[in-house]
Each structure stands twice: as structure tokens, then as C-alpha cells.
């Protein structure tokens, strides 16, 4: 029981940090921030690795494998697409280079 309570405490405090950490964001950054947060919940890959690694039956391995594939798409794709969005916030010279690619 104490462990559940400890995890619940972490959850609630992390939620408050989440509110505080972005509440002053400028509106031009709304979409990149959404995309960046989307990439961070790709941390689900850690969970997918843990359940697949500890799997003791074929069915769990299959479900775990599916979770690993989906989670890596979320994580890798999320960070790369956010980086591409944020590239546009660089100086005008860099932006010109992007257009000429």
C-alpha cells in the first residue's frame, strides 16, 4: 500500500510541475510544444521494453512487440518532427537554406 501511495504522490506532484512549467508559453510555440510533449510521452517505450523483456508467454511477447513498434514510432517520429518545426524559428539565413533544399 505504501508503494502505491508513493507512486500516487509522484504522479500528483509531477502533474503540478507540468502545469507550472509551460503556463507562460507564447502562442507561436503552441504547436511545437504540443509536438514536443507528444514526443515525451513516447517514454511509454520504456514500459513496452519492460513488459516484453519480462514476458513468459508467446501472446505477451506479441502484444509487447506491437507496443514496442508503436512506442518507437511515437518517440522517434515525435522528436524528429518537433525538431523540424523548431528549425523554422532560427534566423532568416537558416530559413533560406531550408527553402532551397
Amino acid at each position: 500500500m505504501t508503494e502505491s501511495i508513493a507512486l500516487l504522490t509522484i504522479f500528483v506532484l509531477a502533474a503540478f510541475v507540468g502545469v507550472e512549467v509551460i503556463s507562460k508559453v507564447s502562442s507561436t510555440l503552441h504547436t511545437p510544444l504540443m509536438s514536443g510533449a507528444n514526443a515525451i510521452h513516447g517514454v511509454i517505450l520504456v514500459g513496452a521494453i519492460i513488459v516484453t523483456g519480462a514476458a513468459d508467454s508467446a501472446i505477451v511477447v506479441i502484444v509487447g512487440l506491437l507496443a514496442v513498434v508503436l512506442a518507437t514510432v511515437n518517440m522517434v517520429g515525435g522528436f524528429v518532427v518537433t525538431d523540424r518545426m523548431l528549425e523554422m524559428f532560427k534566423g532568416p539565413g537558416a530559413r533560406k537554406k531550408e527553402l532551397h533544399k
Partner: peptide, 23 residues
């Protein structure tokens, strides 16, 4: 994270959940 007892999942999940809500 609660299901498998993993703190990084709980922290990152709660962070994104709350930040996403405010956003």
C-alpha cells in the same frame, strides 16, 4: 506506469498530461 510500477512513466506521463491540459 502505475500498472507496471515504473516511476519514469508516471512522471513523464503526468507531466505531459498536465502540460497538455494547460496547453
Amino acid at each position: 506506469g502505475f500498472v507496471i510500477g515504473s516511476t519514469p512513466l508516471i512522471i513523464a506521463g503526468a507531466l505531459v498530461g498536465a502540460a497538455g491540459g494547460i496547453l
